[in-house]
């Protein structure tokens, strides 16, 4: 309601709207291209388009390496999510409930992996793993991904905890619930959506990650690493089909996770 009071001028508003629409077109046209080409019959990517076809999708399901890489990606993400939740939720809890020396510094340092390019995180872990004789495997990729998923979980859960009215916990204790009962019955239900939302974000991010995995992959490729190697061997229309599926699935997951992370007013 208040918002209406400050408005750009008519002309300015139109110009901005036009600009924004162009920008949205710029953001989504490439994705549309990917999708459209995935249904194009022709084996080479040329304009104009030929017939509608699902054959590239069909081929995906007979590609053993590809299917294995998808399974690997699920394994990695399936490890990253519980790991980061197990570490991140208590950490967010500690940050919310306790003050300690260097807390502000810790909160900043914790976020560094979000700003540092993935290849640095990847090669840094690679160096440590090789020096300590830790064999590269899906576990090493999992650890690599956890380093940037962890701060995301902590940010989300920490923000939710800060909004959570602590007198509700006191009311629960007052009514005879122990601290453990209070956590399960009162605290957890109130931060549940933040936990689920960040878990889904972690899942999609881990699923799409390529730079860290690039350094930490041994023999088992994740899906993005498999795509990467396909790209090095030349473009095939299959990639468009994989791309379409991953992007559609990602967007579905994002819709769900944003719903969960949304602030309830």
């Amino acid at each position: 309601m208040r918002r209406a009071a400050y408005r750009s001028s008519r002309l300015g508003e139109r110009a901005l709207t036009a600009f924004a629409l162009l920008t949205f077109a710029f953001l989504y046209a490439p994705i549309a291209v990917l999708i459209v080409f995935s249904f194009n019959d022709s084996p080479i990517l040329v304009f104009p388009l030929s017939n509608l076809s699902f054959k590239w999708y069909g081929e995906l399901f007979s590609d053993g390496d590809l299917l294995r890489s998808v399974a690997n990606s699920f394994l990695v993400a399936g490890g990253v999510v519980p790991l980061t939740l197990l570490l991140g939720v208590p950490l967010a809890f500690a940050l919310d409930r306790f003050s300690f020396v260097g807390k502000a510094l810790f909160e900043r340092v914790m976020l560094v992996p979000l700003i540092v390019p993935g290849l640095i995180t990847g090669l840094a872990l690679l160096l440590v793993f090789t020096q300590t004789g830790f064999r590269l495997s899906l576990v090493s990729i999992m650890i690599g991904h956890s380093i940037f998923v962890l701060p995301i979980v902590v940010i989300q859960v920490y923000a939710r905890l800060r909004r959570f009215d602590r007198s509700m916990e006191e009311a629960s204790l007052d009514l005879g619930a122990t601290r453990v009962q209070t956590f399960w019955r009162i605290t957890l239900p109130n931060i549940k959506t933040a936990i689920l939302g960040s878990a889904l974000l972690g899942l999609t991010l881990s699923f799409d990650e390529v730079a860290i995995a690039f350094f930490l992959t041994a023999n088992d490729n994740t899906l993005p690493m498999h795509i990467w190697s396909m790209l090095r061997h030349g473009i095939t229309p299959q990639i468009n089909a994989i791309g379409t599926i991953t992007i559609v699935v990602s967007i579905l997951l994002i819709v769900v996770s944003l719903r969960l992370l949304e602030t309830k007013k």
Partner: peptide, 20 residues
């Protein structure tokens, strides 16, 4: 004794009703 072992109950200023 922690709060949950005391036979005393409180009505909180903000009510602190459990929203869920």
């Amino acid at each position: 004794l922690p709060p949950f072992r005391r036979n005393v109950n409180t009505v909180f200023q903000s009510y602190a009703l459990f929203p869920h």
